[in-house]
């Protein structure tokens, strides 16, 4: 581990922990929530933000510890944020096509077309 300014060290550590926390929460949601449509929410939001903050932590760490600009990570984050809603949408469409079971509390219906 290189030597970093204490404040920078705190920020990187906090970002890392926040990232791990959100990733874990996304996975807990995947296990705990009642039906498929509800489970779709965890990974699209929490996990994406979790990985996003891990990536930003890595970027800060390398930029500050080597003094050279490290920006490739931005591409990964941008790509994840662009693709997460698209894959969620595709999966929702597939689930509606297959008439996946919904929990009883769900109000409203997906339409048929």
């Amino acid at each position: 581990m290189g030597s970093l300014h204490p404040v920078a060290e705190w920020i990187v550590s906090l970002l890392l922990l926040a990232g791990g926390f959100f990733t874990l929460v996304g996975a807990i949601g995947l296990v705990r929530l009642p039906d498929f449509y509800a489970r779709l929410h965890g990974p699209t939001k929490a996990t994406t933000l979790g990985v996003g903050s891990v990536v930003i932590a890595s970027m800060l760490y390398f930029t500050l510890s080597t003094g050279e600009i490290a920006i490739t990570e931005i591409l990964i984050t941008a790509f994840l944020f662009l693709t997460a809603p698209v894959s969620a949408n595709f999966l929702a469409k597939a689930a509606m096509h297959l008439n996946v079971e919904r929990s009883e509390e769900t109000r409203g219906q997906p339409w048929e077309q």
């Binding site: 498929f36 990974p43 891990v54 990536v55």
Partner: peptide
């Protein structure tokens, strides 16, 4: 099946992390 695909999707994102 959609549940499994969703799990795989989340799994690869965790792999990136």
């Amino acid at each position: 099946a959609p549940d499994r695909i969703l799990a795989l999707d989340t799994l690869y994102i965790n792999g990136i992390a």
